[in-house]
Every structure is written in C-alpha cells, then in structure tokens.
Simulated assay, not measured.
Amino acid sequence: MKRTMFVCVVVAVLLTAGCSSAQQPRESSSPTPDVSTRELIIGAPTEPTAPLPDDWGGKDYWTSLEHGVLVYGAAGSSSCPPVIESGHVEDMTVYLKRADYEGRPCTMDYRPLRQDITFADGTPFTEDYTIVVEKTPVADAQDSSSSAPGEKLLVRTLDSEGFIDDPNFDTGETYWRTRVVDAQVIYEAGGAGGCPPTLDSAILNGNTLTLHGTDHGDGPCAESYVAVRQALSREDGSDFPADLKVIMDNPTGYYSK
C-alpha cells in the first residue's frame, strides 16, 4: 500500500513539472526589426505615366503613397535631374538626399521624373512617416569641369544669314539652339549686338557637350540684334554620340536674365 502511494506521488510530481515547463513562453529567434535601421531601396528615375499633381504644397517636389510604396516626383533639366540618390530612416522620419546642381550649367529643358522608394524588408510605408528631402551637392566626378577635362572641340564661325527667319527657331524660351549635321554640331544664337552670343570654346565629355560663351561681363550691351552661327567638330573628324546632351555655360550677365 505504501509503495503504491509513493509511485502515485512521483507520477503526480512529474506531471506537474511537465505542465509547468510547457506553459513557459519560448524566446523568439527572430527579434523584431528596429524601424530606425531599416534599409531603403531607392528606385531608378522613370518618366511618370500619370499627370503630375496640381498642388505640390509649395515645394519643388511631391510625395505620395501608392499601395505601401513611397512615390517621389519632381521635374527639372534632363542634364541636371533632381533625383533622390540615397536615404535613411530615423525613428518615424525618412530622410531623402537629392542631387543639387546649384551653380552648374544645365540644359534648358524641363522633364518630370518619378522614383519609387520601398523598405528592403517589405514593410509598407504608412502616413505615419514624415518625409524630409535634403539637397546634397553632386559628386565632383559628375562635374564637366573636374579633373577630367574632356575633349576640346574645334570652333569655326559660319555665315549666319537666314537662320533667324527659321520658324522652328523659337527665341521665346532660349536665345540659342544646336543641331547635329554629319560630323558637326551647328550652334546658332541671337542676341545683343554689343555682346554677341559667340562661343569661345566647347568641351565634349562623354555624351555631354558644354558650350562656353564669350564673357562680356555685365555689359552694358547694345540693344541692336545680331545673329551668330558656329560649327563645332572633333579633331579626328569622328561623329558625335547619338545621345548627345548640350549644356550652355555663358558668364555674360545679359544672357543669364
């Protein structure tokens, strides 16, 4: 009888210990990620397929949420695009760094762009996040006046008669234009007679052609009208890149108005 009671007590103790251990929570092997260390994936800029928003909130960019994706949009020169280059998260604030081209010559076109930004871990963006866009100077490697000077072109003056009457030359937006003819870039411009918009030099760096206008200072410039036509060519006579981008760098104050 005593032996039977002893066995029952042992079994009861073991059962109680088993139930106690089963009720204890297990430690998670996958800790919850810290939102402040989440990595961002910055998508490549693309052309927007939908119309741009009418109200940008007084800023030169806009942001929105689409199915948990942060969408950044802006518009600017195709040679100096206002793209987001990097970003990081601090608590519930997303800091995006945008290229700043202040003081650099840029083409005078205007193109919109869009970038999609996501969390690398797949977490969706919500309206709880604050978005801050900061401007940062572009790297020196992107500057056409950096240590890589590029290829200096031959500049030759041509007869300018007739092109001002060309209906395709719209002086309302810009005073100059370029077009590629065979292995030459033809530069045409119209401006003040006292400060003719001639080119002193032209530099080809990759697929970017930078035009350096003659420096007439801040004038004064005569109000008479003058037309200029010049031909640019490479020393070896080779063709220009098919995706050539042209930038104007004119230090004369009259042409920066």
Rank of each mutant, 00 (worst) to 15 (best):
E151F: 10
E85R: 14
D100W: 08
L113S: 00
I84Q: 13
S144V: 14
T37Q: 04
S64G: 15
A50H: 07
L154M: 11
I117T: 01
E134L: 13
R156L: 11
R98L: 01
T63H: 02
A120G: 02
D60R: 09
K135F: 10
I117K: 00
R38N: 08
V138E: 04
V83Y: 04
G73T: 02
D159V: 12
Y61A: 00
E66G: 04
V71E: 05
V138R: 05
P45Q: 00
R104D: 05
F119D: 02
R38K: 12
G103P: 07
G68S: 07
T37V: 01
V155K: 05
E39S: 04
V133Y: 01
L40E: 02
G76Q: 12
W56G: 03
Y95P: 04
S144E: 11
P112C: 15
D143G: 10
P45V: 00
P137V: 02
E151I: 13
T136E: 14
P149N: 12
P53M: 02
S78D: 10
A120W: 01
G150R: 04
D91N: 14
P149W: 12
P53S: 03
R98G: 00
G68I: 04
T118Y: 03
T107H: 07
G57K: 04
E102F: 07
L113P: 02
A74E: 01
W56T: 02
A99L: 15
P53G: 02
I164A: 12
D55R: 05
L153A: 03
P48Y: 04
H67C: 06
